[in-house]
Design a protein around this nucleic acid. Structure first.
Lengths: 178, 178
DNA sequence: CCGGTTCTTGAATGCCATGCAAGAGCAGCC
DNA sequence: GGCTGCTCTTGCATGGCATTCAAGAACCGG
């Protein structure tokens, strides 16, 4: 019944579009990249993108999924490290994604798909951070609050320019929560 | 030389536009409010707004200035309070401004005027928070880091839904920094 | 009442996300 | 090999929106 050329093809083309979008959303910004520019970078037409994605927000979510998966993979590959170092790693590794962080928060209230992604992301982040804080010796009843503080501090550092030393000082002081 | 009707007039009309924009930016959101809607709410035409403001971002900055001034006035009127209570007051008082917080961060990288306002805001916030933390007994060398943590936590709480109790827990734990 | 200045406006202009209808290319089936 | 039904792809709209422009009103000092 299905007249699919190669079963791979669809996913490959989709991936090319997501790759192009990722580079532009990260380096130029979501609001400042027209669909036409993504299309050009991917070697297709604007309309073609709409065959693979419902709208620009859906494409954004696909980019976010890809970026998140890639970061998780790298983090796993980095192996075990002291908690402070892990936090610093996240902050420096994700610094270049600040545009994504900002646009997600900006679109959460008007785009249901972005809002869903945001919820999923925080659920995941909470789990990982809580685990880290537990291992670092934070009291069980303080875990939820410590976790949220860490999330907000990380997001804040990602969206505000700062130097290496500031980040270190903040992470060190965060250790006072234990 | 200047053929000004009444010297007041200009500022009055300007204020009406800013009031209309404030209500819409706060309740509906900057991106979701067309200039035409602001104009209609202010009883003028889109073009008229451009006589008073360079562009939509300049109008946003005017709204931010007004909202900030109003919050500072209220805060001063609230009188002296324990540090924890002051932080909670800020969080609950500014909760309804979450859309403004998000849009500022989203536009910082593409709008110079918004970027300037953002810088000024953080300079002001840093001063006030540092003073509060100092009074609350935070060690002098920890002040910069504690201040930034507080700023990021406040911004995080403003842009993420949470219940009253969570906010209290977080502020209490923040007290552990002293 | 005149000339210059401040406002105001309706009608462009141009960018952009998205929708639409008409094709291509391909896989099975006769 | 030609027909048919898919999956894609595209050029051409459409409509929303920020911003600009040229042409007035309204008003001031003289």
């Amino acid at each position: 019944m299905p007249a699919n050329r190669r079963p791979q093809d669809r996913q490959e083309k989709r991936a090319e579009i997501v790759d192009a979008a990722e580079q532009l959303f990260v380096d130029v910004g979501f609001e400042d990249t027209p669909m036409a520019r993504i299309a050009a970078a991917a070697g297709v037409t604007t309309t073609t993108i709409y065959w693979y994605f419902d709208d620009k927000d859906a494409l954004l979510v696909a980019v976010l999924d890809q970026v998140l998966a890639s970061a998780l993979r790298e983090h796993a590959a980095a192996g075990e490290q002291p908690w402070d170092e892990q936090l610093l790693w996240v902050i420096t590794r994700l610094r270049r994604l600040h545009r994504l962080v900002s646009v997600v928060h900006a679109r959460v209230s008007s785009s249901p798909v972005v809002n869903d992604w945001h919820d999923r992301f925080h659920a995941l982040a909470d789990i990982n951070l809580a685990e880290g804080f537990r291992a670092a010796g934070v009291r069980e009843q303080d875990l939820p609050a410590a976790t949220r503080i860490a999330v907000f501090v990380i997001e804040g550092l990602l969206t505000h320019t700062h130097d290496e030393q500031t980040a270190r000082d903040i992470v060190r002081l965060l250790g006072a929560l234990t």
